[in-house]
Each structure stands twice: as structure tokens, then as C-alpha cells.
């Protein structure tokens, strides 16, 4: 983020002349960047700096510490790292990302992409459209639909009743499982579309050659197709991880993070601490840790995959 400031160390433009007019010309050239830099500095960099600073104070939502929070150093972090709740929430976040994004969305998305390519036409458009519709809907509407589906008297238990099985209060007894399935339901379309596009780019000569060499369908898929599209896979893994790290609305509507904090991933816990228990400083410390995790994944994305920026 430090690169956001126009530091004045600007090179001359393409084919520009070495005459002394250069400085002012560079200035007029970067002038259009200014509104963007100001907005980003105020509302992206600002909160990040505020997050670092606020996590070192004892700010509360109301009371004397709301207006004049004291600087308390690393106390929030000491409290955080010694709290079982935080470690539990971190574990739930890891579980949520691994189960719903890395495994769920990616595997189902890949399966759908493969199935779509080998199914009959009207079915392909229909199912593809349904999966995309689940993802296009506003998150809160998707959350209502899945809340109803998993409710004690909801569709899932009615369906189970038809086959003679006894349902349970899924949202209460298995809150993590329900929000994980919900996030797979809602987010798989993204992976499906990425993999659908990637599979279209695999040269058919490669799979044909493998077929002639006697490779079966599964071998062709694992030995030829997957290695060819590995870049799409790693990109998709990182992007879905980052999206899932930020999921709040889905969990908030379905379980509210509960019962207790049994389905509070880090963004939910940060919200609960700050606004339910009024510990803004403490909530900010959780936010900072979450941002840091996001930042690490973001940097991994940029460093390892080296997307072209020119």
C-alpha cells in the first residue's frame, strides 16, 4: 500500500523528451490518478492504519472509553492469544475455508465443469443456470433460502422424513456443517465458471494422443487435463480462499455465529466482540489478525502466480 502515494519518483513517459519541461509534464500525467489515490488512502489505507492503532487501545462502544480510549499496548493481543475463544474461532475459520472453499467449491466446481461438457445440451444450460443463479442472488437472500432449508421444520427434514429418517435441528446441533454446505451452494458457480473456461482451453490433441496411447478417462483427466490447467486451479484456490475468509452475511443470518460462538469465524467474532460485547479495541485486534491473514494470502497470490500487471 505504500506505493499508493505519488512520491514524485516518476520516470519519463514513453518517448518523452529530456527537456526541462519534464517535471511539470509528469505531474499533469499523474494528476488523473489523484482522486483514486485520495479515496484509497482515506477508505482503504485509513481503516488498515486505524485497525493497527485501534487494536492497541481499550476503546469501547459506549462509556468513557468510547470517546477517549487509552493506549494499552499489546494487551488486546495478549488477551486474544490467551483466549480459547480466539483459537477456536481461528480453527473454525480454517475449517470453513478448507471444507467449503478448498475442497467443496473447487471439487464440486470442477466436477460440474466436467459434467457440463459431457451432458446433453438443454440439461447443461438448465443446471449451469441454476448454479449461477445461486451465486448471483444477493447474499442475504441466499442465506434466507438456506436457513429455511436447514430449519427444524425445513425442507431437508421433510425430505429425510420421506425416506424414513429422523432429522434434527441442523442449525443448532451442526452449525458449522450447515454454513459450510451453504457456502458451497452459494459459491460453487465461481469455480465452475473458471474451470469451464480452463477446460475449453485444453488442446484436444493432447487428450486424443493420450487416448491413442490407451489411457482411460480418469487417467486422461489426472495425467493430462489437470497438469495443463494447473495455473487456473491454483489461481482459483487462492481467490476462493480469500472470498471465503470474508464471508459474514451467510453465517450471520443462518446461525448468528452460534449457538454461543460455535460457528463464529473470525469476521463474525470480530463483529460480536465489537458490537455485541462493546469491546471495540478487542474486536479491532481480531480484525487486524484477519486482515493480516488476508494480506498473507494476497501476497502469496501475487508472488507465486505473478499475474501480469502490464
Amino acid at each position: 500500500m505504500t506505493a499508493l502515494a505519488p512520491s514524485g519518483t516518476v520516470a519519463r513517459g514513453r518517448g518523452s523528451d529530456p527537456r526541462p519541461r519534464r517535471g511539470s509534464r509528469t505531474f499533469t500525467r499523474i494528476l488523473p490518478l489523484l482522486p483514486a489515490v485520495l479515496l484509497l488512502a482515506a477508505f482503504m489505507l485509513g481503516p488498515i492504519v486505524y485497525s493497527l492503532y485501534g487494536s492497541l487501545t481499550n476503546r469501547t462502544l459506549t462509556g468513557p472509553n468510547a470517546a477517549n480510549p487509552e493506549f494499552i499496548g499489546l494487551d488486546n493481543y495478549t488477551a486474544l492469544f490467551s483466549s480459547a475463544e480466539f483459537w477456536n474461532s481461528l480453527w473454525l475459520t480454517v475449517l470453513f475455508i478448507l471444507a467449503s472453499a478448498v475442497i467443496g467449491q473447487n471439487v464440486l466446481g470442477m466436477a460440474l465443469a466436467v459434467l457440463l461438457r459431457s451432458s446433453v445440451k438443454p440439461l447443461r444450460s438448465l443446471v449451469g443456470g441454476l448454479v449461477v443463479l445461486a451465486w448471483v442472488l444477493p447474499e442475504i437472500v441466499a442465506a434466507f433460502a438456506l436457513y429455511a432449508f436447514f430449519s427444524t421444520d425445513g425442507t431437508l427434514n421433510v425430505l429425510l422424513g420421506w425416506v424414513g429418517l429422523e432429522g434434527t435441528s441442523w442449525l443448532y446441533y451442526l452449525p458449522m456443517a450447515t454454513v459450510i454446505i451453504a457456502n458451497i451452494w452459494r459459491g460453487t458457480a465461481f469455480s465452475m465458471m473458471v474451470y469451464n473456461a480452463a477446460l475449453a482451453e485444453v488442446p484436444p490433441e493432447l487428450t486424443e494422443a493420450a487416448t491413442i496411447d490407451g489411457a482411460g478417462a480418469w487417467q486422461r483427466f489426472t495425467q493430462v487435463t489437470l497438469p495443463v490447467i494447473r495455473r487456473s486451479i491454483s489461481t482459483n484456490l487462492l481467490l476462493t480462499t480469500l472470498q471465503t475468509l470474508g464471508v459474514f452475511t451467510l453465517i450471520w443470518v443462518m446461525t448468528g455465529g452460534g449457538p454461543g460462538t460455535q460457528s463464529s469465524t473470525l469476521p463474525v467474532l470480530a463483529y460480536q466482540e465489537a458490537f455485541k460485547f462493546a469491546q471495540v479495541g478487542y474486536g479491532t485486534a481480531i480484525a487486524t489478525v484477519t486482515l493480516l491473514i488476508g494480506a498473507i494470502f494476497s501476497i502469496v497470490y501475487i508472488r507465486i502466480l505473478k499475474p501480469e500487471v502490464d
Partner: peptide
């Protein structure tokens, strides 16, 4: 234009697209 800070700016932009905004809401509130 080719500018020296262009690459770093674009990388910063890309970095920004990856940050979990929901995690930011508590400090944004403050």
C-alpha cells in the same frame, strides 16, 4: 504512460482486491 511506480501501483491495486473487506468493518466503524 510508462511510469516507474506503475508496476508497484498495479501490484498494490491487486493486493487491495484480495483484502477481506468484512474483516475491516470494526476499524471502519471507529
Amino acid at each position: 504512460y510508462r511510469m516507474r511506480f506503475q508496476r508497484s501501483f498495479m501490484y498494490a491495486i491487486l493486493f487491495g482486491t484480495g483484502l477481506p473487506i468484512t474483516a475491516m468493518m470494526v476499524p471502519v466503524y471507529s
